[in-house]
């Protein structure tokens, strides 16, 4: 019964949230910039002409000119540390603080929508953006790869060769892996967004969290906490590029991200449901 009550009108508000998010020019500008990453990468490789020795530049860079399907992977690795967290910071940091800043938050709450429901819907919105961002990057990567480079069966890290459809499946899995990582960061951003009415502050703080976490992961003295860091497994999807496929790192990363979603989701809930809306 309680569940029915919570779900009443839920889909309507999710649709409304997505339509508001994806009708903002800012959202499209960020997705367009994300799409530029594989495009510039592919053009740079194409123009340089010379073959890149293995081991130089980002992983897989040397393979891009041999097989266009690697454009997406390489672009993803480039975008994970900074660019994707930046866009997630903007979207997740804006969730509550942005509505509070324009004053629309008070009109949503007296509509009325319960605060718990609004948080869930905001998280769904941020997650939808994470999906859109990784999908944009990978799909653009595939398209420019097809245009600029030969495309064929893919040689995996393990040396095995897989067919193009099997490679596309792995591309989708990597995109899913990164999406889950970004959802963990979204939960952090959602929490920070409940703390302020200045959206830019929440956006910046979210990006800072992701950056600090990545810095901590480079300090060997802190090895003991590394596995618990939000970003520690973000680049660990190499397992998905072996044959047979190994889901071990995917499982670990998913558990860590779920833990972050649970912790920061609860923190956001306890903060937001007791907060006076004075803006």
């Amino acid at each position: 019964m309680l569940r029915d009550k919570f779900m009443e009108g839920f889909g309507t508000l999710v649709r409304s949230e997505l339509s508001v998010l994806f009708r903002r020019r800012r959202t499209w500008a960020m997705l367009a910039t994300i799409a530029c990453i594989p495009i510039f990468l592919a053009i740079a490789v194409q123009l340089s002409g010379s073959t890149i020795p293995p081991g130089e530049g980002p992983p897989f860079l040397d393979r891009v000119s041999q097989n266009g399907l690697f454009v997406g992977f390489t672009a993803m690795i480039l975008a994970i540390p900074l660019f994707l967290p930046l866009t997630i910071g903007v979207v997740a940091g804006d969730t509550i603080a942005g509505e509070a800043n324009t004053g629309t938050l008070r009109y949503l709450l007296i509509a009325p929508v319960s605060r718990a429901r609004l948080l869930v819907i905001k998280f769904i919105g941020a997650s939808a953006f994470a999906i859109a961002a990784t999908a944009t990057l990978m799909i653009t990567g595939i398209i420019v790869g097809l245009i600029l480079f030969p495309v064929g069966p893919v040689t995996l890290l393990s040396g095995d060769v897989i067919s193009i459809p099997a490679a596309l499946l792995r591309i989708a899995l990597v995109a899913g892996y990164v999406t889950i990582s970004l959802m963990g960061l979204s939960a952090v951003g959602l929490f920070i967004s409940t703390l302020t009415v200045i959206p830019v502050g929440a956006m910046a703080a979210t990006v800072v969290v992701s950056t600090v976490s990545q810095i901590l992961a480079t300090l060997p003295q802190l090895e003991i906490i590394h596995p618990y860091l939000l970003t520690f497994n973000w680049l660990g999807f190499a397992d998905l590029l072996r044959a047979p496929m190994d889901f071990h790192s995917m499982a670990i990363n998913t558990i860590v991200q779920i833990a972050y979603i649970a912790i920061f989701g609860s923190a956001a809930y306890s903060r937001f449901t007791t907060k006076d809306i004075l803006s």
């Binding site: 009108g9 839920f10 508000l13 508001v20 009708r23 324009t102 929508v113």
Partner: peptide
């Protein structure tokens, strides 16, 4: 208070869809 990048009509639709009884 409204979403400046939405039309007047779309703003009303937004607030109305927040009301689960609507």
């Amino acid at each position: 208070a409204f979403y400046p990048y939405l039309s007047g009509r779309d703003n009303l639709a937004r607030f109305d869809s927040a009301d689960s009884k609507a």
